[in-house]
């Protein structure tokens, strides 16, 4: 069985994710590139977890415990979010 695609992303982008300055207002600042972003509350939640965790299962577990969401939709949305991040954190 191959690795979950998000685990690959999390280990590859671990350093980039950690350097992001996150603010509860949804303002995100990347000190390396000088780029700033707006992230929505669920995106912020995921970013905070990703800064602590490299295991997608643990992140999913946390989100599913907190939010009214199925595992299937979470996986789909998380994948799409990681595609966005991959683009901006290059």
């Amino acid at each position: 069985m191959s690795e979950h695609p998000l685990n690959n992303f999390l280990s590859l982008y671990s350093d980039s994710l950690k350097r992001l300055a996150l603010n509860d207002s949804g303002f995100v600042f990347d000190p390396m590139t000088g780029q700033s972003f707006t992230v929505n509350p669920c995106g912020l939640e995921l970013l905070k977890l990703m800064q602590k965790q490299k295991d997608v299962e643990l992140i999913n577990h946390q989100i599913l415990a907190e939010f009214d969401i199925t595992a299937e939709i979470l996986e789909r949305d998380f994948l799409e979010f990681s595609e966005q991040l991959r683009r901006y954190l290059k």
């Binding site: 972003f37 669920c42 009214d68 969401i69």
Partner: peptide, 14 residues
């Protein structure tokens, strides 16, 4: 009580 999920998204400031 579970929180409402919104599709996560991040937008760069242009």
């Amino acid at each position: 009580l579970l929180k409402t999920w919104q599709k996560p998204s991040i937008t760069p400031h242009q």
